[in-house]
Design a protein around this nucleic acid. Structure first.
Length: 186
DNA sequence: GCGTGGATTGAT
DNA sequence: TCAATCCACGCC
């Protein structure tokens, strides 16, 4: 069982790869009209800021990427392919436009639809554009910490769907829990 | 104003 | 392999 309550903002105000690792096994919690949906994060991707050609922030500060350039601990949600949403958590200090994409959840409570893959994750959790810029310190939508005593193995692989990003495409910035049956793809 | 393409997904 | 579906963003 997840211990209830959000991780502090300082959790996000760290190196993005460290945050990505510590998000694996943590719990995404969203109160949807009184129904509390909970999923265990089993797969993420790190996006390392303006230098990372796979990151949205690599094209600079625009209306869409405003949240990425802001302080850590906020949700960056965007529409992809006109039909799905993707959720990131903003990391590192304000101005370092880094983030971690949440890619797959293991269902814990009130998750009836599949949540493997960033689009399905948002659909199952009831996340959409209204949550862009949401402060993850708030009680209705937050991330609760993982159990640090739980044994686990983290696998690093190239990120999905970023073949256009040159040398950044091959970097092992996708992380998942080894053995989880809920990761989005092999 | 117009054209292009995307951090996806599921069907063919 | 491809279509669904829509908007951000670059360029005219």
């Amino acid at each position: 069982m997840p211990c209830l309550g959000p991780v502090p903002r300082s959790f996000y105000d760290r190196d993005t790869i460290d945050v990505a690792h510590d998000l694996l096994g943590a719990f995404l919690v969203h109160d949807v009209a009184g129904e509390v949906r909970v999923g265990k994060i089993v797969e993420v991707e790190a996006y390392l800021g303006e230098l990372d050609l796979a990151a949205h922030s690599s094209r600079g500060l625009t209306p869409r990427t405003r949240i990425l350039f802001g302080p850590p601990g906020f949700a960056y949600v965007y529409l992809i392919y006109g039909m799905y949403f993707c959720m990131n958590v903003v990391t590192e200090r304000e101005g370092n436009a880094c983030a971690v994409l949440l890619r797959a959840l293991e269902p814990v409570r009130n998750l009836r639809d599949r949540s493997q893959g960033p689009g399905l994750l948002c659909r199952a959790m009831g996340i959409d554009l209204r949550h862009n810029g949401h402060d993850l310190e708030s009680p209705d939508f937050f991330i609760a910490p993982r159990d640090e005593n739980e044994a686990r193995q983290v696998v690093a692989r190239p990120r999905i769907g970023v073949a256009y990003s040159g040398i950044w495409a091959a970097k092992p910035l996708r992380f998942y829990l080894e053995g989880s049956r809920y990761i989005s793809r092999k």
